[in-house]
Design a protein around this nucleic acid. Structure first.
Lengths: 134, 134, 134, 134
DNA sequence: GTGGTCTAGACCACT
DNA sequence: GTGGTCTAGACCACT
């Protein structure tokens, strides 16, 4: 089961990590249209983070049209948000790959070496999944 | 010739962008052992950045053993720094690719789509080079 | 017949929207002295709102002297409440207009432009009425 | 000289009052393209408000494309932001007027009475200006 | 000094 | 309990 984790030492702000992580979970269909996502406080406990930080992440997702807040109820996934979430995640992945390739090229790394990193990354991902299944 | 650029809007601190950019240039052989790198002030003017920021980047490279300061001369590339720089750049690229693949997997993106992004990234890099040659 | 509606996304608290809406209906003579207003539960269903929220609005109207609760009957419009309701609504309208004009003036909008907005607002109101008559 | 004030008792969040107030000042040409606006901390002292609240207002203006943050320097008015600010302020004024007229109509207030409020609002604004000139 | 992020903790409206 | 707003105060990167 995909889960949300946060790296407090990363240069990427924690609230953005949470927003992007939730977006991935929506893209993956873990949270579906009309369903509630974990409440601000609950999520804060899970991620060991201040509620305000989660709040900020959820606000960003609301502005992006993926979530909608219902007074006294909680945050709910909006209709049609899955394709939008997928597009957003795809954009991030595309940018990361472009950055990686640009840096590799600038440092004169061989295509062969970088290809091997790319393949290994996929292999490790599958391995993670495999470990979780049994 | 690959050049150093900085994105002030990025989440990655500018001093780190400079340090990693310089490291790539060393890895690529643009700056060779015994050669001087641009002075802090010169570099600051070129990158439209505060000298303190460049200073900090150079300190990081000194700690990493890639540069050393020679009195009255300036910062000089240390002997044997090229393979170290290459290893460092390779590590960053490896991490970026791993992040990209992990996020792609979390969002349920198809391997096929992500492969296409990866190939396009390489194609764009070559196109850039081609443009720069004439 | 003018009806009561509530905008849950507004910055104005829902309970206040309800209180002011009811006051307008009293001012307009839709609810007359001695008559019952919709029960808390009924109103809550109509407005798709929690009964507590309606309750709070009715309490506010009670404190304002427009409604009184009669045991076994429900909330009833008090004698002489119509002029008071009209004065209250007039005060709100006066404040809104003052705010609008103050903000227009602060932003340097021309009197001509703001006059046109004001006239259009009246025209739209009449159009709404016309639509409702047939 | 137009100044920025905040009403902490209003239902409108303070950070939005600040954002809209600053937008009016940009629309009025008090802050011009390329100029710095008061720093977050300075503004917070002036308005007797927490810096985070000002920060949030400035973020909203940044998202709206009116301000731009320059690292270590401060928030600067973006090129071409004046017409955008004017349009934004006009929209708010239009909405306030529409609300006022709708509520007046719902309460059965006479057009004559509401017109007199509207005219008085303009008269008061001019009076304020007159008071400030000598 | 300037903006950006985060924590800790409080109060409010609404369910 | 749920989200929304706000204060007080801290640390970071950058000028």
């Amino acid at each position: 089961m995909p889960s949300l984790r946060v790296d407090p030492t990363s240069a990427v702000p924690v609230f953005r990590q949470i927003a992007e992580g939730m977006r991935s979970l929506i893209a993956a269909g873990v949270y579906r249209a009309g369903e509630r996502v974990p409440s601000v406080r609950q999520q804060a406990v899970t991620l060991v983070v201040n509620p305000n930080t989660v709040q900020r992440a959820y606000e960003e997702l609301e502005r992006a049209g993926l979530l909608e807040s219902q007074k006294g109820i909680g945050m709910v996934v909006r209709d049609g948000s899955r394709p939008a979430a997928t597009r957003g995640a795809a954009g991030v992945v595309e940018t990361l790959l472009a950055d990686a390739v640009t840096q590799a090229h600038a440092a004169g790394l061989s295509r062969k070496l970088v290809d091997s990193y790319y393949k290994t990354a996929w292999a490790n991902t599958r391995a993670d999944v495999a470990e979780e299944i049994p």
